[in-house]
C-alpha cells in the first residue's frame, strides 16, 4: 500500500481551477519531486494535503486513512510535516525554541504539570529538548541554536524550517522549494541532508524549481501544468517528455 494516495484532487478558487483531478501516490521511503512552471498549482497541492485548504473534490489518504476534513494540526500529528515556500519561522524566538515547536504534538503536559513541575512534565521537557537538539544537529544548526531565528542567514533559515518540521517526527516530509535563494554549494549540501533524511526512514515530497537539483535527487517526478498532471516517471523520462518541455519553454513556434 502506498504511504500517500491522492485521487481526483480538485481545487477551485472562484472561476480558476488551480488543481484539476490530480492523481498521484508516494511509496514509503522514496523521494518524489514535483515540478511545473509558476502557477501550475504545486503549492496549492501542498496546502490541500496539509489541510490548509479544503479540496473541492477528490480523496487524500495517508496509510489508507482519509485526511479530508481534518485540521492541519491533526494531519501533522498523523505524520505529515511541511515547510513553506516563503519561510514562516517564529522570527522573534531562538532557533532552538522554533524546533521545540515540532515536539508539541508528541507531548502532553498541561497547565497543572507546568505550574507544579510534576515529574512527568520535567521528563517530557527534557525529551523535547533532546529531540530538538538532535534535529538541529542533523541540519548542522546546533552551534546557532541560541540565535534568534530572524538573525540567521537565509540558508540557515531554510534549514531551520526543515529541522522544525523533522521535530514533529513525520513519516512524510513535504518541502516547498527548499533550495530557493540558496547558493549552488548550499543547495547541494542541502540535497545531501535530504538524502540522509530519506535514509533515516522519512518519505519526501518536494517542490523544486532548480531542475538540476530535483533531477539529481528524486526517485520519481511528476510534472504539473495548469493544475493538471502532464507527466510522471523517472527523472530522465520526464526530462525528455515533450509536454514538460513545452510547459517550461512554451510551444515552439512553427
Amino acid at each position: 500500500m502506498a504511504l500517500l494516495e491522492v485521487k481526483g484532487l480538485t481545487k477551485r478558487f472562484g472561476g480558476l481551477t488551480a488543481v484539476k483531478r490530480l492523481d498521484f501516490h508516494l511509496d514509503e521511503g522514496e523521494i518524489l519531486g514535483m515540478i511545473g512552471p509558476n502557477g501550475a498549482g504545486k503549492t496549492t497541492v501542498f496546502n490541500l494535503i496539509t489541510g490548509i485548504y479544503p479540496p473541492d473534490g477528490g480523496e487524500i489518504r495517508l496509510n489508507g486513512q482519509s485526511l479530508l476534513g481534518l485540521r492541519p494540526h491533526v494531519i501533522t500529528e498523523l505524520g505529515i510535516a511541511r515547510t513553506f515556500q516563503n519561510i514562516r519561522l517564529f522570527a522573534n524566538i531562538t532557533a532552538l525554541e522554533n524546533v521545540m515547536a515540532g515536539q508539541h504534538c508528541r507531548t502532553r503536559a498541561g497547565v497543572l504539570g507546568a505550574i507544579f513541575r510534576l515529574r512527568s512534565q520535567r521528563l517530557e521537557e527534557q525529551r523535547i529538548l533532546r529531540e530538538a537538539e538532535r534535529c538541529l544537529r542533523f541540519l548542522g544548526l546546533y552551534e546557532k541554536r541560541h540565535e534568534l531565528a530572524k538573525n540567521l542567514p537565509y540558508g540557515d533559515q531554510r534549514r531551520l524550517e526543515i529541522a522544525r518540521a523533522l521535530a514533529t517526527g513525520p513519516q512524510l516530509l513535504i518541502l516547498d522549494e527548499p533550495t530557493a535563494g540558496m547558493s549552488e554549494k548550499e543547495s547541494s549540501e542541502l540535497m545531501d541532508i535530504i538524502s540522509q533524511v530519506r535514509d533515516s526512514g522519512v518519505t519526501i515530497l518536494l517542490i523544486e524549481h532548480d531542475m538540476k537539483v530535483v533531477m539529481g535527487i528524486s526517485d520519481r517526478i511528476i510534472a504539473l501544468d495548469n493544475g493538471e498532471k502532464i507527466a510522471e516517471g523517472r527523472p530522465a523520462e520526464v526530462q525528455r517528455n515533450q509536454r514538460v518541455i513545452e510547459a517550461y519553454l512554451g510551444k515552439e513556434e512553427v
Binding site: 494540526h73 524566538i93 515547536a101
Partner: peptide, 23 residues
C-alpha cells in the same frame, strides 16, 4: 512550559503553529 511556548508560536504565526501540529 510547553503551553507557554505554544502561546508564543500561535502569537507569532498562527498558520505555521497549526502546521507544526499545534491545536
Amino acid at each position: 512550559s510547553r503551553l507557554g511556548r505554544a502561546w508564543i508560536y500561535v502569537r507569532e504565526d498562527e498558520l505555521a503553529a497549526e502546521a507544526m501540529g499545534i491545536d
